[in-house]
Design a protein around this nucleic acid. Sequence first.
DNA 1: ATCAAATTTGAGATATCTCTCATTTATGGA
DNA 2: TCCATAAATGAGAGATATCTCAAATTTGAT
Lengths: 208, 208
Amino acid sequence: MVDRYFSNKSLKLGKRERTRSALIDSAIKVIAEKGFESASIKEITQAAGLANGTFYNHFTDRESLASEAAGVAIFEIALEIKEEVKDIEDGLDKVIVSSDKVVDRTINAPTWGKIIIGAWHHLDDFQQDVAQIMRSDLNLAKRQGLTSLPINKLLEYQICSLIVLSISLQLKNGRNKATRLETAEAILRLLGIAPAEAKQRAQKALFG
Amino acid sequence: MVDRYFSNKSLKLGKRERTRSALIDSAIKVIAEKGFESASIKEITQAAGLANGTFYNHFTDRESLASEAAGVAIFEIALEIKEEVKDIEDGLDKVIVSSDKVVDRTINAPTWGKIIIGAWHHLDDFQQDVAQIMRSDLNLAKRQGLTSLPINKLLEYQICSLIVLSISLQLKNGRNKATRLETAEAILRLLGIAPAEAKQRAQKALFG
DNA sequence: ATCAAATTTGAGATATCTCTCATTTATGGA
DNA sequence: TCCATAAATGAGAGATATCTCAAATTTGAT
């Protein structure tokens, strides 16, 4: 259960790490509930079962906690997914299967999804870090000659925006197979793949 | 100057309309400055030079004012652009020239750009209204046989997301011709156009 | 000029929030 | 077990915010 994900990961560690993780889990929950800009330090520390002053032993301000919380959430997801797609050799397949798994994870853990969306929209560093995560798969597809488009920062950001949109829409309206498929197809078309091939490839990569 | 855009439009109207417009102009400015969720009613009414209680004579809460402010901003932009592109017959050209002009307008008026971005991310109704604005051009392109892709809500939202990304990046990093061009190309690829044709078409439609 | 109605006002009740810091509690090595 | 250090605590100073409503002001028709 993701509610205490980082607290559980820290059980064997020292008090400082356990407290910090409690703040992170709480930040994820409260930011998802109240909104990226609206969640207060008071609510976060209260939900963590901690005193007011404890916050300032670990973070300078709300944004640094939010940044940390979103960062570890997406990092955790990326790590799991990297392992799951390591046997996929086709760079394009890797990109769309990874993207689909990100969406899947964030729908399964809506609080994580919401803070990631919020961080994507509010934090420049977060945007750069996320784009970085997928860059290697995009470069692989390029080296494999699967796309002729130049891979640049804007294209990476565009793909991320489509992923974030898919997360957002499915968190709102529920899981939707067509949205998953059409998001994968759209990413492929952004990468220069013709619609017919994009449809076929997405279908095969996502559903076998 | 957009700072008092709606106030100026209301000069000939009654006190109630002039006051409401002052709140809208102020909301645009304060929300752009403080953030969509963080801007307070107190700051908005103060920046408008109005008393605390005045707000509640016009709006029930912050979100209804924010929604109204973003709505009239995008509506105003859409109306101007509709007129400017009325002689463009090619549906795809209409889509990309309109998109480019939206970005242009919002970069020229950063406060409008920021509230529109904020509303796009926070307000479902706003998303639907914005997608609706471009639907007719997309349907025209479809009728003209310029794209074979089914035009559905997800595709509309995806195109809007790319436009919002372009606005966001250029507001942050300054105007950028390559970003404009590559955004137009990306929209065309989303619509199923091959990369080479997308590049050519975008170049021609945006730069003559 | 008058005056009913429309509209704004801003003090105040109430609540919430940030942040500090002297004190308390927990930790871990000796 | 002791104790120096690490870490948490939570009251309180100070500030900000929402919302109401009786009173004041503005408006526009007569």
